[in-house]
Design a binder for these strands. Structure first.
Length: 522
RNA sequence: GGCGGGGUAGCUCAGAGGUAGAGCGCCGGACUCAUAAUCCGGUGGGCGCAGGUUCGAUUCCUGCCCCCGCAACCA
């Protein structure tokens, strides 16, 4: 039985349409999932939508539909996005599903049985607009007699009965967790932030609401619904069949939660505390990615630069988009995207470097080697060097993937391809054709073999294009996993090759001619 | 206020006590197998400011100026 690997995206709040931030997280996690599958793991990849909470309820009301219908309608858009992005997720969870109610109530009961949940009342200055409570010192009384919160929104004194989770009791255990599992939070900067936050002291957490009912009822006290984050985080467990025992149970604990940097605390403080309380194993790692900015500006509805992922796929094509996002932005950091950046990056690396290397070598093979994989002669040190670099690639890639450094994997592939272009130019097979055909055959063989290895490792990132590349290399569908990177699995001399065709066309910029500097799809 | 991370070539960034690096861009050359691609060479930086330690600092220390993150509920 293969080793299991369970990874998740955060579940999206489908209060509006999916945007590029959702797409980014999904694409990255999808690439990680694909990598692990190709590397022989039994992978479970989960994504979904988080459908409860007051904001969903409010938006649904505004639109005059029930929250459930609203959730269903918007969640469908996220499913569509996952499909459009070539998603390989094994499940798509919606927190309004019955299975999730069962799981959430089960974990609640475990926490309650552990003595970590108690009823009290929550009071304070509450801003409906901000959905937040503020302390006395944060509130100012103005001449109109109304008090205002720090964001300038009106606040009212609210006193609400609420269940609390004894988070304060977990401070030491959490610090031990971070201490003993330095890889629990990535990247490292995030870890430091969390540690200092927890060290500064934890307060018990209000984990139920009575002011609205769009949520999961608290077991035994149905006028309360669970706080959205108890509900939301539990989705990761739900998908494994919790609390039942089934074929997916063994996937828990999750190996990796991929999340946005804005929700680090929920995943690295609350979530492990909930699990400890419930007596359940903890996920192995939580990795926070950064945000994407549209040409340096944070996207927002008011600025009007919210980018629809469907539009990006239309303009650039899926693989170009995937490649750009995963290559351009070091995973874990913030990054920028722009029309020019997408075109430059993908033309330079996908079309000019990788695509062209395949095309120049395969078209020579088609013309001068009877369209069969050529038979190599003895290797020179130049041959050995590129082959060695191509062998190193899997090792490098695995290490990078386990740190979620997706960009580093692609950088290593590009470096190999660059070296091979240099090698190709240096060996001049077009000249060897006349002077030393055997040597030409060797150079072409080595090049094609390197392209094969690069293509195999490219699959998680640009699945469709990598498949096309492997097609024109004559690599059978069942010979594309990472175990095929072993030296003895190299291209077989004499096997037939289909006619070569370009795999990564250059992006020809029509927009530049039409509306000049503006760039970017609408 | 506090804690943390930064300010290095036009752009994005790497680096590290001993005469500054990569990719992209730009300029020139080569080649023609190839997707006007590729290869070679070159251009380009007072390494935020001011002090200090040192034979020598961009790299260590101090102060200052900017930027960004965290500081209990938006991917």
């Amino acid at each position: 039985m293969a080793e299991r690997y369970y990874l998740t995206t955060a579940i999206s709040y489908p209060n509006g349409r999916p945007h590029i931030g959702h797409a980014y997280e999904f694409i990255a996690t999808d690439a990680l999932a694909r990598f692990k599958r190709l590397d022989g793991y039994d992978v479970m990849f989960l994504t979904g939508t988080d459908e409860h909470g007051i904001k969903m309820l409010q938006t649904a009301r505004k639109e005059g539909v029930s929250p459930r219908d609203f959730a269903e309608r918007n969640s469908a858009e996220f499913k569509k996005m996952a499909a459009a992005l070539g998603g390989s997720n094994d499940d798509f969870i919606q927190t309004s599903e019955p299975r999730h109610y069962t799981a959430s109530q089960a974990i609640w009961t475990l926490m309650a049985d552990a003595g970590d949940i108690y009823k009290d009342s929550y009071s304070g200055w509450y801003s409906v607009r901000d959905e937040a409570y503020y302390g006395e010192d944060e509130v100012t009384l103005k001449e109109d007699g109304q008090r205002y919160g720090p964001q300038g929104t009106p606040v009212d004194w609210v006193e609400e009965e609420s269940y609390f989770f004894r988070l304060s009791a977990y401070q030491d255990r959490l610090l031990d967790l971070y201490e003993q599992n330095p890889d629990f939070i990535g990247p490292a900067e995030r870890r430091n932030e969390v540690v200092s936050f927890v060290k500064s002291g934890l307060r018990d957490l209000s984990v139920s609401r009575t002011t609205f009912d769009w949520g999961i009822p608290v077991p035994g006290d149905e006028k309360h619904v669970m706080y959205v984050w108890v509900d939301a985080l539990t989705n990761y467990l739900t998908a494994t069949g919790f609390p039942g025992e089934g074929e997916r149970s063994a996937f828990w604990p999750a190996d990796l939660h991929v999340i946005g940097k804005d929700i680090v605390r929920f995943h690295t403080v609350y979530w492990p505390a909930f699990l400890m309380s419930a007596g359940l194993p903890l996920p192995r790692r939580v990795f926070a990615h950064g945000f994407l900015f549209n040409r340096g500006e944070k996207m927002s509805k008011s600025v009007g630069n919210v980018i629809d992922p469907f539009a990006l796929i239309d303009v650039y094509g899926l693989d170009r988009l995937r490649y750009f996002l995963l290559r351009e932005v070091p995973f874990g950091q913030d990054g920028n995207y722009s029309h020019d950046a997408i075109v430059n990056r993908t033309n330079s690396e996908l079309a000019n470097d990788i695509g062209n290397l395949a095309q120049r070598s395969l078209s020579m093979i088609a013309k001068h080697c009877e369209a069969k994989v050529p038979t190599p002669g003895p290797y020179t040190s130049a041959d050995e060097a590129v082959l060695a670099q191509s062998h190193q690639l899997l090792v490098t890639a695995r290490e990078a993937i386990d740190r979620q450094e997706l960009h580093a994997v692609l950088a290593a592939i590009v470096a190999l391809v660059s070296a091979t272009n240099r090698y190709f130019a240096g060996e001049e097979p077009w000249a060897l054709r006349k002077t030393d055909p055997d040597r030409m055959a060797t150079v072409l063989y080595v090049t094609a073999e390197v392209v094969r290895r690069a293509a195999i490792l490219l699959q998680p990132f640009v699945p469709e294009s990598a498949a096309k590349l492997l097609d024109i290399l004559g690599v059978a569908g069942d010979r594309r996993t990472f175990s095929e990177l072993a030296p003895e699995r190299a291209l077989r001399p004499g096997s037939d090759l289909p006619p070569p065709q370009p795999v990564f066309p250059r992006f020809v910029d029509q927009l530049a001619e039409e509306d000049g500097a503006k760039g970017g799809p609408k």
